[in-house]
């Protein structure tokens, strides 16, 4: 089966969280997933554009989805917020033909191909857990996690609203847990697994955001987590880069290595840590990885 996708990494993976993009490309290559570039794709506008310019945000989404559709491919992303934004627009286009027509009538005037609402929006994680043959994945695991206790941090926009997502969402989502098991790790059950990383209020409610990060990380640590993984570049930024500020805000040490799911998957596949950008992580995972003989 050929797994070909129009690849939409999102703004964070193109700039601050480049390592997630490197890791995604590296693991995709190993697993026979081809990620095709989308040269015309812009930022999806995230949750903000939907608020400031609702019609424009749908037009931006339609233009992105249309580019993937013109390639004859479904779209795959590695950012939860891009996933939710594009899924939300796509859900509406599929269920509200009049809305799609209205938006198409505007974008065609600007020379954009009309969108026919024929494609799906996936997260690369879902592709790996639901479409790649588990036997192939197992065969690629060169450095199993040897029972490492890994906290899955799903991120809101990978789960909710459940109705707009093509994969199992809400409380029934288990893809990250299944991935950890496939890698030979033990998924940690903890309170924060489906909570919010706070990224979207990082600037408006700074203290609250840091408290969220601390609570999520500490609940994972208390449940015995050695490492935390997330499928989202923005969660990575919040739970990883902001872990120090979060420690300062609550006056407690956390020290929980956090990384993108593709980075841990890549390590388990034996891919070079430099290719995966492991040194760019804010909480050094080396000790945890060495302890389980992954490094």
């Amino acid at each position: 089966m050929s797994l070909e996708f129009a690849y939409y990494p999102g703004c964070a993976a193109k700039q601050v969280q480049k390592e997630a993009d490197w890791a995604a490309r590296a693991v995709a290559r190993e697993l026979g997933i081809t990620l095709h570039a989308m040269p015309q794709a812009t930022c999806c506008g995230a949750v903000s554009l939907r608020e400031s310019k609702p019609a424009f945000s749908l037009a931006v989404a339609a233009r992105i989805l249309s580019e993937a559709e013109a390639q004859g491919r479904h779209l795959a992303t590695i950012c939860n917020t891009c996933l939710q934004t594009l899924s939300h627009a796509n859900y509406r286009f599929k269920n509200e033909p009049e809305l799609l027509e209205k938006i198409n009538s505007v974008i065609v005037q600007a020379g954009v191909r009309a969108y026919k609402a024929s494609i799906n929006v996936y997260h690369l994680l879902w592709v790996i857990t639901d479409q790649v043959d588990p036997a192939l994945l197992r065969q690629k695991i060169k450095k199993p996690l040897n029972g490492m206790r890994v906290a899955p941090f799903y991120g809101c926009h990978n789960l909710r609203p459940a109705e707009i997502l093509v994969a199992k969402g809400g409380e029934s989502a288990d893809h990250l847990d299944r991935l950890i098991q496939l890698l030979g790790g033990a998924p940690v059950a903890y309170n924060g697994h489906d909570k919010c990383c706070g990224f979207h209020v990082m600037l408006s409610d700074a203290t609250e955001m840091r408290t969220m990060v601390a609570k999520n990380c500490l609940s994972a640590k208390d449940a015995g987590a050695e490492v935390m993984i997330s499928p989202c570049t923005l969660c990575d930024m919040a739970m990883g880069a902001y872990q120090k500020p979060a420690e300062n805000a609550v006056g407690k040490e956390i020290n929980l290595p956090e990384m993108n799911f593709a980075q841990l998957l890549g390590l388990a596949m034996g891919i070079n840590p430099d290719t995966l950008g492991i040194s760019r992580l804010h909480v050094d995972p080396s000790a945890a990885l060495v302890a389980r003989k992954v490094l």
Binding site: A41, A55, F56, A59, V60, R63, L99, V106, A110, V112
Partner: peptide, 24 residues
């Protein structure tokens, strides 16, 4: 940041929507 191809399309769409707003 790197510029996507065809961004002028978005500028056009934006103007069209400002001139003729649509209720979504």
């Amino acid at each position: 940041p790197h510029q996507a191809q065809g961004v002028e399309q978005l500028q056009k769409i934006y103007k069209l929507l400002e001139q003729n707003p649509i209720d979504v």
